Simulated scan of single mutants.
Amino acid sequence: MTDISTGVTVRQATRGDTQGLISVLAEAFFDGPVADWLVPDPNDRRTVYRRYFELALSHGLDNGHVDTTADLSAVAIWYPRPEPSPKGSLEHPAALEAATGVYAPKFALLDAVFEAYHPGEPHHYLAYVAVNPEQQNRGIGAALLSHHHRQLDAIDMPAYLEASNLRNRELYVRLGYRAGPPMILPTTGPTIWRMWRGQPNAARPEGFPASGLLPRRSAR
């Protein structure tokens, strides 16, 4: 489907797109507070990130839904999260360690923190969205997400993601997300903003959904 306002054509990704999309993910996430925390050495980071995002993209193609653009300039990895949430694969820790080597403990810690604070309500989870750095600030990422949002709106399904910086946080607010209580990663880690896009047909604004660590507060 082509977004008329931006001219961006969105389609579902296939295995044939893997190499191009790994590069987009690795380059788009290369800089930033989370990257600096996960792999402080930039030289190591480039190698580790390519292996890590090869694993992440493969998992998304097998277990989730992956959207891309006609020119492979952007990618979004979504996971339907029914209630109760699915349990992780027993093979994932070993695969993560093989991909990230000595940095595996921080990658595993990041996964654990994200999962602990994950909403318990049914939703679609945006695990990753990335745009080729040379093509950012052209509305490509927004068009890619809006494509999936329209599908969610048709079935009255919320969406959830984590924003790792204020710039991205503001983009998601413009796309209909609300910020919830933030997370601060351990060992001098950065702040992560939890973002929730509620059901579009709700009679009134919803409170931020509860997670395992953050009990639901009564409405006032």
Rank of each mutant, 00 (worst) to 15 (best):
Ala95Thr: 07
Ala116Phe: 04
Ala99Thr: 02
Ala112Cys: 13
Pro190Cys: 06
Gln136Gly: 07
Arg46Cys: 04
Pro82Cys: 05
Ala74Met: 03
Ala159Gly: 11
Ala219Trp: 05
Arg45Cys: 04
Ile77Trp: 13
Thr188Cys: 03
Tyr125Pro: 07
Arg81Trp: 04
Ala116Ser: 11
Gly120Phe: 05
Ala154Met: 01
Leu109Thr: 15
Pro200Asp: 02
Ser73Asp: 12
Thr18Phe: 08
Ser23Pro: 00
Ala127Cys: 05
Gly101Leu: 13
Asn165Lys: 02
Tyr49Gln: 15
Ser73Thr: 06
Tyr117Trp: 04
Glu162Gln: 09
Pro40Ile: 06
Leu214Arg: 12
Ala99Gly: 03
Ala95Pro: 05
Ala127Glu: 09
Ala154Arg: 12
Val24Met: 02
Gly88Pro: 00
Ala219Gln: 09
Ala76Thr: 00
Glu121His: 14
Pro215Gln: 11
Ser5Glu: 10
Arg15Cys: 00
Leu110Glu: 12
His148Ala: 11
Arg194Trp: 01
Ala143Pro: 01
Ser89Val: 03
Val8Met: 03
Trp196Asp: 09
Pro82Thr: 01
Glu206Arg: 14
Pro181Met: 08
Thr9Asn: 00
Arg216Gln: 13
Met195Lys: 15
Arg197Thr: 11
Leu96Val: 04
Pro33Met: 04
Gly176Arg: 08
Gln199Asp: 14
Ala159Ser: 15
Val131Trp: 02
Arg178His: 12
Val75Gln: 02
Phe30Val: 02
Leu213Arg: 13
Ser73Cys: 05
Ala108Arg: 15
Asp71Val: 04
Pro40Ser: 12
Asp153Ala: 15
Leu109Asn: 08
Glu97Asn: 10
Gly212Arg: 10
Gly176Ile: 07
Gly176Phe: 08
Val8Phe: 03
Ala74Cys: 08
Ser218Phe: 14
Val173Lys: 10
Pro119Asp: 06
His59Asn: 12
Gly88Val: 00
Ile77Cys: 14
Arg150Thr: 08
Val48Lys: 00
Gln12Thr: 15
Ser218Leu: 14
Leu214Ala: 05
Met195Glu: 15
